[in-house]
Simulated assay, not measured.
Amino acid sequence: MATHGKGTGVVGYNVQTAVDAEHHLIVAHTVTNVGSDGAQLVPMGLLAQEATGCATLTVLADRDYLNGDQVLACEGMGLLPCVPETLTSNHVKRGLLTGQDFV
């Protein structure tokens, strides 16, 4: 898997799992050597959809899965992606308020 350093890498695997939120059971899994989760939203959603037999699924994922192309691809497949935006503001480090501070 590639790491953040230029021309560096680590021998390892990235395990992806899909869990049924109601029963807390793993319904699908896969292993890849791609270090980023950004391209895994649709493949994991489809594996979960196939395993559960549901025509539509709500897919909850952390912000590492946020990828515009993947979110758009979910639209026609019966997958409703719920992925938070990536935090790109430097306000917290500077002691300023961010959008998360407001309700």
Rank of each mutant, 00 (worst) to 15 (best):
T3R: 14
S36G: 08
Q70G: 07
L47Q: 11
H24V: 08
Q49S: 07
E50W: 03
V11A: 13
V19I: 15
H24L: 12
E85K: 05
G78W: 04
Q49G: 02
T17A: 15
G76Q: 12
T52N: 09
L46P: 01
E85C: 05
L57P: 05
F102Y: 15
D62M: 01
V71K: 01
G12P: 03
A48P: 08
Q49A: 04
Q100N: 14
V19L: 08
S36W: 04
A55P: 01
H4F: 09
V19Q: 00
M1S: 11
L72F: 09
G53N: 06
G5P: 05
E50D: 10
V15F: 10
R63T: 12
T30I: 06
N33K: 11
D64T: 04
G68P: 07
A55R: 09
L97N: 12
E50M: 06
L96H: 15
H29R: 11
D101F: 11
A39Q: 11
V83F: 05
I26W: 02
V11Q: 13
L80P: 01
V92G: 06
Q100G: 14
L97V: 11
Y13K: 09
T52I: 09
V34D: 15
L97Q: 15
L47C: 05
Y65I: 00
L79N: 02
F102K: 13
H91S: 09
P81R: 00
M44Y: 04
A48F: 06
L96G: 13
E75L: 07
A73Y: 01
G12T: 05
G95T: 06
D69Q: 08
T32D: 06
Q16F: 02
A48C: 11
A21F: 08
H24C: 12
S36Y: 09
L80H: 14
G76H: 08
K93H: 12
L96Y: 14
A73D: 06
G45C: 01
V42K: 00
M77I: 03
A21P: 09
D69M: 03
P43V: 02
S89N: 13
G5Q: 14
Q70W: 05
G12W: 07
F102T: 13
L47R: 11
G35S: 15
G12A: 06
T86H: 10
C54W: 04
E22I: 03
R94N: 10
L66F: 11
L79S: 05
L97D: 13
F102D: 11
H23F: 10
N14C: 04
T8N: 07
A61I: 02
S89P: 10
Q70R: 05
V15T: 15
C82K: 13
T86E: 09
G53A: 07
D101E: 14
Q100D: 14
C54E: 14
N14H: 07
V42E: 00
Q100C: 08
T17Q: 11
D101P: 09
V83S: 05
R94S: 08
V11F: 15
K6C: 09
V42Y: 00
G53F: 06
V83A: 04
Q16W: 02
A51R: 01
Q70N: 10
T86K: 15
D37H: 01
Y65V: 00
G38Q: 04
G95N: 11
A61K: 01
C54S: 12
Q49V: 03
K93S: 13
K93R: 15
A21L: 10
L96S: 10
V31C: 06
D37C: 02
Q70F: 07
G38H: 01
L79D: 03
